[in-house]
Design a protein around this nucleic acid. Sequence first.
RNA 1: GGUCCUGUAGCCGAGUGGUUAGGCAAAGCUCUGCAAAAGCUUCUACACCGGUUCGAAUCCGGUCGGGACCUCCA
Length: 495
Amino acid sequence: MSLKIYNTLSREKELFTPLTPDHVGMYVCGPTVYSDVHLGNCRTFISFDIIYRYLVYLGYKVRYVRNITDAGHLEGDRDEGDDKFSKLARLQKVEPMEIVQKYTLGFRHVMQLLNNLPPSIEPTATGHIAEQIEIAKQILNNGYAYEVNGTIYFDVEKYNKEQSYGILTNRKMNDLLEGTRELGGQDEKRGRLDFALWIKAKPEHLMQWPSPWGMGFPGWHIECSAMSEKYLGKKFDIHGGGMDLAATHHTNEIAQSQACYHTSPANFWMHTNMLTVNGTRMSKSLGNGFLPEELFTGNHPLLDKAYAPMTVRFFMLQTHYRSTLDFSNEALQASEKGLKRLWDAYEVLKQLAVGSEQLAIDAELDAKVNKLVNEFDEFMNDDFNTAKVLGSMFELVPVINSIKDGLIKADAMSASTLALLQQKFKAYLEDIFGLQNSAANNDTLNGVMDLLIEIRKESKTKRDFATSDKIRNQLATIGINLKDEKGGEMSWGIN
RNA sequence: GGUCCUGUAGCCGAGUGGUUAGGCAAAGCUCUGCAAAAGCUUCUACACCGGUUCGAAUCCGGUCGGGACCUCCA
């Protein structure tokens, strides 16, 4: 039982061994809080939430750091001008920190709805200006950066003479140079690939800090180098983020760490794939993204209906994190039904008890259940293959339902097998996959439902089907499903 | 142009050189006052053309299509 993780650096699955036994340090690039997170952003954070939860399940003590970028992220593609926060703040006539506050709270709210656990530390760029200046200073001292007019640039070509700059995405320097478009307004830079560590601020700039090179603000890439080093050390286990960050942001992070500390920051680089809409990436700049709120309310022209946060989470679990996932109403609705089926079986499973005799154990069934259950860990250990785990879980659903309906005797399975099944379903559905029951847990509602069920049972006994159908149909119109179980019992659930 | 990923049944999607992934949809049957749910059964696919192999959707080469990154984006 050993965990294998696909490492972008080596482009293969590698055996995961933490630097410090039993401890894992993981850094994930968080959101830039100048606008609402869209569903594509959420995919990355859900993926890493599940990775985090699984590492904890394996018994590791995990320090999970996910930053909030609240400064230094430039608008456009030149290293001058406003950062995104200052620009928006000026447009809306508010403080940059009001922008930051608004979208940070929004982000956290969405994370909570999707049942993502909070990271161990959620540091902000503005809270680590001093650390970022220190790194820029050190890189300057080490000779891998130069100052022009109060702005500090990283000297990519010089760095590339000693280290391979494009190592993460397997790019050669010459290819990179050819592929880079000629941009205007870059007279200051020596090399086309050079990027800013620190940027000189114009006097009217709203967010600026004193530095040895005058008033300015940090470049985008340096914040992650500063915060990961501060909380996880110069070298840590896992660095993650969306695939779109690999070629630029993460490549520059590696260069910064090498130039500053002479080490690559992370052993494992993990990248989650994109969420697409009609085959094209969901992104802020394309404007084809769904906001989580639009999804949860169904208030969007492309949405047939509203989808619960757990449906969205489950939808994402059904594919591997390194595959693209295409959004569609059909796919979401399939997930909604699939999740319901799985969760209903889980509710049944929780109630199952072994027969006392234990005389009729069906060895074949017992072995099958054991095999399927043991596959959960096996599949997760193979680079977090949640899709395969769900496949095995669904294969167990008919077994669970058949026991409930008496088609399989409860004691056909050994007590230990049933206990294992119950324990693993709970661990996976709740602890690792982070799914929750969407039905309201409300004592008042439960009381009302108990009463309605009682009346319906009575009317059925009296063969007063008009009344019994009325109860069922009326409830259906408000989204509550009544099910007649075998033996006259009734259960209910909220759609 | 460069780097890389990808093309799987109506839809979404796993996947290993030889074994039905799974979900949704559809059809039939059982159960049921009816319905729903549930159970059983059916639908058996891997872009195209070559090659390697006893055997390839899975490996190799080519063709065509889709996408990502190389410029802000998870």
